[in-house]
């Protein structure tokens, strides 16, 4: 019976929750849903996730939803149901591009982009491997580039990313074209206040 319930959350466009088929024990198990993940995600994101009534506006407007394993509306539903492992291990949290279409349109003012940021940070803290490894690695390479010089230096950032991801062949030609147009400078432009940046990084990456 729990299958029906899960079917509800994993098939966004076929809402198929036939109440008459849910036996008493399923309802009881719903009653036992662990709400600690909902509380944690609510606190971390600052968004009131219990307000969601599954109107699907977020998913309908999301540019990357078709490529996600769990659609944005279901991410919220699964958080409400305490499915921490599934949510933090999903590709969805990494495929969100923070375009904020969802948050702008949500009738309950839930900023799902902000929620996705919080979920990514929770996944990293909990040591859940990113389902979309390369997206995480690119973010890391980008942030490390800022740590080194205070500004992003594309050439070293891209080399760092390629070494981390071991994906050497993708986008070689566009990269070369940008280089030839003078749009990937060889020399980094380091700022004077690198010590300040280093201090900011130390404070912000410290375990709380």
């Amino acid at each position: 019976m729990s299958y029906r319930l899960y079917g509800f959350v994993t098939q966004p466009f076929r809402v198929d929750l036939r109440m008459e088929e849910i036996k008493l024990e399923t309802v009881t198990s719903v009653g036992k849903v662990d709400s600690s993940f909902l509380e944690e995600a609510t606190k971390k994101s600052g968004e009131d996730l219990s307000l969601c009534y599954q109107c699907l506006k977020c998913t309908a407007g999301c540019p990357t939803a078709p490529y996600m394993d769990i659609r944005p509306n279901n991410i919220i539903r699964m958080i409400q149901m305490g499915m921490k492992r599934e949510v933090l291990g999903s590709s969805a949290i990494w495929l969100c591009v923070s375009c904020e279409t969802c948050g702008t349109r949500c009738p309950n003012k839930i900023d799902i982009g902000v929620l996705m940021d919080a979920l990514r940070e929770m996944a990293i803290k909990e040591g859940v491997p990113a389902r979309e490894k390369n997206i995480h690695l690119l973010h890391e390479a980008f942030v490390q580039s800022i740590r080194r010089g205070g500004r992003v230096h594309e050439a070293t950032m891209l080399i760092d990313y390629k070494l981390r991801s071991k994906d050497f062949m993708t986008d070689l030609i566009p990269g070369m074209m940008l280089f030839l147009k003078g749009k990937i400078p060889l020399l980094p432009s380091f700022i004077k206040g690198r010590e300040e940046i280093k201090r900011i990084f130390e404070r912000c990456t410290k375990e709380k």
Binding site: A118, R120, V143
Partner: peptide
């Protein structure tokens, strides 16, 4: 003078506090 990177999407994707402190500088 001596501005730094705003942090961009990469920073707010993985470190909320850092994504506020870099622009704050």
């Amino acid at each position: 003078e001596d501005w730094n990177c705003c942090g961009a999407a990469a920073t707010h994707s993985i470190n909320h506090l850092l994504s506020l402190c870099l622009p704050a500088r």
